[in-house]
């Protein structure tokens, strides 16, 4: 695992200065009444200023848990055990005290959520969502915070920002609400933005607008973005690099272009085939991949994708394949790694 993170670090010039985010062998175990779920199982990567990493995988593959573990933000509920290291802007997230963590959240790192319908408090005005943190964190007074909030709304492309401040969330459309959620995440100019399925609940045209907005904001503010989606199509053209997750592990990671050109892992290939086309209704499940993700309490030994893999061989179920650099004509392809014994599109091996 660490060999791949070293490889990633080496190739990315931006990452070499001071990476915004370093994730090293991160493991998150959720203790549920049915047993322990290894929701994130040894993930490593780095992300530099202005870079976008797309994290893709079916629902249940551990993307949200990964995002939240990186933030150190756990939902109330089951207890979790986290090992490994996360550095955000050089700070070791899991070594921070509760109050230092709160400093980090909404400061160095912001988060955008999946459902803009529930991500805003229905009884709070749009303006209050923004001004609360500005006043507390920046020590602004009421008019200053209001002016800044209106600026933020203008920044995320909301017309008539002054008037919107006094509206309630239910008076806005889904796309507008998601813009408000993004404005909230940006309030304190984070170095890292974690966007967990930011467009899944929106319809197709609005999806594109929100993704364009994120790209523009990244150009203007230079933050690193972790763009999480179950749909490989969403990250296409938006991410510099893509990490494909399956059952808590990264099974393939590469530059976006390389991954779309020549996916090596059968799961990536299947995801590519399953990209919803424009004429399909939104929110269709990735029905093209037969079978369901494994039971995460007792995942299969060996390759976790084996039960669903059309290229599976007997050796696949013996030991888990490690995430190793891809080779082309005997030379390591920079930044491209995958975990499979019988890769596709790997003619040179």
């Amino acid at each position: 695992m660490s060999s791949s993170s070293a490889a990633l670090q080496e190739r990315s010039g931006a990452a070499r200065e001071t990476p915004v985010l370093v994730v090293d062998d991160l493991r998150t175990q959720i203790h549920t009444p049915h047993g322990d779920v290894q929701a994130v199982d040894g993930i490593s990567f780095t992300l530099g200023r202005g870079e976008t990493l797309g994290v893709v995988g079916e629902s249940g593959s551990g993307k949200s848990v990964l995002g939240r573990t990186i933030m150190g933000l756990y939902t109330t509920g089951p207890t979790m055990t986290v090992t490994g290291r996360v550095l955000i802007a050089g700070k070791d997230v899991h070594a921070l005290s509760a109050s230092e963590l709160r400093e980090l959240w909404g400061g160095d790192v912001g988060m955008v959520f999946q459902d803009p319908m529930t991500a805003l408090n229905p009884v709070k005005k749009v303006g209050v969502h923004l001004t609360e943190s500005l006043r507390k964190r920046r020590g602004m007074n009421r008019p200053q915070a209001k002016a800044r909030a209106a600026e933020l709304l203008a920044l995320v492309g909301i017309p008539e920002p002054r008037r919107r401040l006094d509206q309630y969330p239910h008076e806005l459309s889904g796309g507008m609400r998601q813009r408000v959620v993004i404005a909230m995440a940006l309030a304190n100019e984070p170095a890292l933005l974690i966007a967990d399925e930011p467009t899944t609940a929106l319809d197709v045209t609005v999806q594109r607008q929100i993704l364009d907005l994120l790209a523009r904001l990244q150009d203007e503010l230079g933050m690193a973005i972790m763009l999480i989606s179950h749909n490989l199509g969403v990250v296409a053209g938006r991410a510099d690099r893509v990490a494909v997750m399956y059952a808590g592990r990264v099974v393939e990671t590469a530059d976006a272009a390389a991954l779309f050109d020549a996916p090596h892992h059968p799961y990536t290939e299947a995801l590519l085939e399953a990209i919803p086309r424009l004429h399909q209704p939104p929110h269709v499940r990735l029905a093209a991949i037969d079978g369901a993700p494994p039971n995460m309490v007792a995942p299969p030994v060996g390759c976790r994708f084996a039960p669903r893999c059309r290229y599976a061989q007997p050796d696949c179920t013996e030991a888990p394949p490690s995430l190793d650099p891809a080779m082309a004509n005997g030379v390591v392809t920079p930044g491209h790694s995958f975990a499979c014994y019988h890769p596709v599109n790997a003619g040179g091996q």
Partner: peptide, 10 residues
Amino acid sequence: EFVLAARAMG
């Protein structure tokens, strides 16, 4: 999610 969002804002 708005509770999580509030926490994520510190």
